[in-house]
């Protein structure tokens, strides 16, 4: 069932113009004390096209965060190749925005200062950047909260500020590692719609890690299903649901068969 269904392995086909990310035989082995190492990613190959919404699902420990950290340039890989726009990823890049699992706002900065933090570090705060931050805050409903401190905002509002921070640089690629895991179900649905709206307006490429199968089907063009020990990309599921997506689609038959199929893929790997 595994390996064989992965569509874009081996073949050294030249990257088509609209391919943004290309991963070939990507392998990550974390060194361990006993010298054997942990194989967190094993021979992972895929392409992501410009403007695609990709979700990654998989059990805990299958290497989702590892893959995202390699993409964001925070972590070196052991073997294989990974490129963004044809260039190897070898460190953090302003073209890549990262949204963390917890909002990770700095409590001593106001929301505006937090959102401008990457620009402050890169020393490129301009009036235009400020304006962009302001209008992004407004589009996620944080108008008028710029001078507040993070602890004065709810969890959902904090996470929205975290998303704005990743967007201020206007990156091509947005990486999100379980960004809504800590939110209640209602807020989470709202945030999903919010993310889709931002994605549809800006046509950025988004790679979104989640534990929720429903969330992955609802948001994505394609769902990457990963399996653990060693971390492999078991299957890529194309989601052919119309856009824009609406919450009532979740109850449709097509939606149900997609999520059922992904659940089956994940369960198949459970009994070894």
């Amino acid at each position: 069932m595994t390996a064989m269904t992965n569509p874009q392995t081996d073949t050294a086909t030249p990257a088509t113009p609209d391919v943004l990310i290309s991963s070939r035989h990507l392998t990550k082995i974390y060194p361990t004390r006993d010298g054997r190492g942990v194989r967190a990613l094993d021979d992972v190959s895929f392409d992501v096209r410009d403007g695609e919404f990709i979700s990654i699902v998989g059990r805990s420990g299958c290497g989702k965060s590892t893959l995202l950290k390699i993409l964001s340039g925070l972590l070196d890989h052991t073997r294989g190749d990974i490129t963004l726009n044809g260039r190897p990823i070898d460190g953090p890049d302003p073209d890549i925005g990262v949204v963390f699992q917890s909002p990770t706002l700095l409590p001593w900065l106001t929301i505006t200062q937090n959102v401008l933090f990457p620009n402050k570090i890169r020393r490129n705060i301009t009036p235009a950047v400020r304006e962009r931050a302001q209008s992004l805050l407004a589009t996620v409903g944080l108008d008028g909260f710029g001078d507040r401190y993070p602890k004065e905002l709810s969890g959902g509002m904090q996470q929205r500020a975290g998303i704005v921070r990743a967007l201020v640089q206007d990156p091509e690629l947005l990486l999100m590692d379980e960004p809504f895991g800590a939110l209640d179900a209602m807020t989470r649905e709202q945030m999903n719609l919010e993310v889709l709206r931002i994605w549809e307006e800006s046509r950025k490429t988004i790679i979104f890690v989640t534990h929720s199968i429903v969330e992955s089907v609802f948001l994505s063009d394609r769902v990457f299903v990963m399996t653990p020990r060693p971390g492999r990309l078991a299957e890529v599921v194309d989601i052919d649901l119309p856009r824009p997506r609406t919450l009532d689609m979740i109850n449709s038959d097509a939606f149900g068969s997609y999520s059922g199929w992904i659940r089956k893929l994940l369960e198949a790997e459970g009994d070894f």
Partner: peptide, 22 residues
């Protein structure tokens, strides 16, 4: 928090900036 340091790293922060700002 490790995530705060990662936040600075994805912004290409230098070691000195990580110390000073995080």
């Amino acid at each position: 928090e490790e995530e705060r340091i990662e936040l600075a790293r994805v912004c290409n922060a230098s070691e000195l900036q990580i110390f000073r700002h995080i």
